[in-house]
């Protein structure tokens, strides 16, 4: 269990720069999500921390050791792969014990730690099964047990839940979080699923084109994105065109910034909203009922906005579709132009 620090790391594959002067710190015991579109360099960053790639320049520290030129097998990490990568020729217990045997842990101790790890992931009864006899969720748990049984300094997860179906994924998210808390291991995990990143982690790093765009706690990154890309990647956003800005209360200088809102921060009303609220006129194009929630597509000054609210909070709309769309000034998104 250690702090991981990546400083000024640059990685190149032939002509393409996969990581461009990346610096980021992962606190001891934290659960950190690396999020970005495909090709953003998130998996490269994870595999560079793991030691599969060696950076062209920069340093990587795990605990108090510089490891940028140490190969993966000497870095003392635990890693979980997208397809689990369980060894098909070994039983569940042998899979979990592999790293212990490599480290020449005495047999009795090995047995004890395997059964502890199995208990931790609640798979005690399946120790003698082969990976081919397990369900997707069970394989996932074995892979997790195998990655942490050696008490590595850091746990690296490469899109660990993407192969599971939706319901199982939510269960495993809760499970993963519980186990990570219980073990207290520094965890870095790569995902392209923003909801998963927001749910699981206590810090998020957003990557784009091999650079870290923004890093911080999930709520902060969601509520205060630094640019349009981050705002759009972590959720949806409506952007205010320049002509609408005059009558609004804005938290920053107009110059050099763009302003927007999250769809769920908006309210819709037929009458003029209270003073102190930011409000613009709009024309409702479509109202989409989806059970508890509803989505409205509204034309605001020529651009299409999206509003998401509880269906019962959306009032009866006037016949001509002309409405007020309002939000609290503090909910305004401010990003670099």
């Amino acid at each position: 269990m250690s702090r991981v620090e990546v400083s000024n790391v640059t990685m190149e594959f032939g002509q393409t720069t996969a990581l461009d002067d990346v610096s980021i710190a992962f606190e001891d015991g934290g659960f950190f999500a690396l999020l970005g579109p495909s090709g953003s360099g998130k998996t490269t960053l994870l595999r560079t921390i793991a030691g599969f790639y060696f950076p062209k320049s920069g340093t990587i520290r795990i605990g108090d050791r510089n490891v940028e030129s140490v190969p993966v097998e000497k870095r003392d990490i635990g890693m979980m792969f997208q397809n689990y990568a369980l060894f098909p020729n070994m039983s569940v217990a042998d899979n979990i014990g592999f790293g212990l045997r490599v480290r020449k842990v005495p047999a009795a101790e090995e047995k004890k730690r395997i059964s502890e790890a199995l208990d931790l992931v609640q798979l005690g009864a399946l120790a003698n099964r082969r990976p081919s006899q397990l369900s997707g969720g069970q394989r996932q748990r074995v892979a997790l047990a195998r990655a942490i049984v050696t008490n590595p300094k850091v746990l690296l997860l490469d899109e660990p839940l993407s192969a599971l179906d939706k319901t199982l994924r939510v269960d495993m998210q809760i499970e993963l979080k519980r186990i990570q808390r219980e073990v207290g291991i520094t965890t870095i995990f790569v995902t392209h699923d923003q909801e998963e990143a927001l749910t699981l982690s206590d810090r998020i790093g957003i990557l784009r084109n091999g650079r870290i765009v923004q890093a911080g706690p999930p709520r902060e990154v969601y509520d205060r994105p630094v640019d349009e890309f981050t705002a759009g990647f972590l959720g949806e956003a409506n952007w205010l065109s320049a002509s609408l800005l005059e009558d609004l209360t804005l938290p920053a200088q107009v110059d050099g910034h763009r302003f927007g809102t999250r769809p769920e921060a908006l309210r819709i009303s037929a009458d003029t909203p209270d003073a102190g609220q930011n409000a613009v006129r709009g024309q409702v194009r479509q109202r989409i009922f989806a059970g508890a929630m509803a989505t409205c597509l509204i034309d605001v000054g020529g651009s299409q906005w999206k509003l998401i609210a509880r269906d019962r909070d959306i009032p009866e709309l006037p016949g001509d579709g002309q409405v007020w769309v309002s939000w609290s000034p503090e909910d305004t998104l401010v990003v670099r132009a």
Partner: peptide, 15 residues
């Protein structure tokens, strides 16, 4: 044989 198996073994410290 999936290359990830080899990577997984390496991550566990196998020579």
């Amino acid at each position: 044989i999936d290359d990830d198996l080899i990577d997984a073994a390496r991550s566990m410290g196998a020579s």
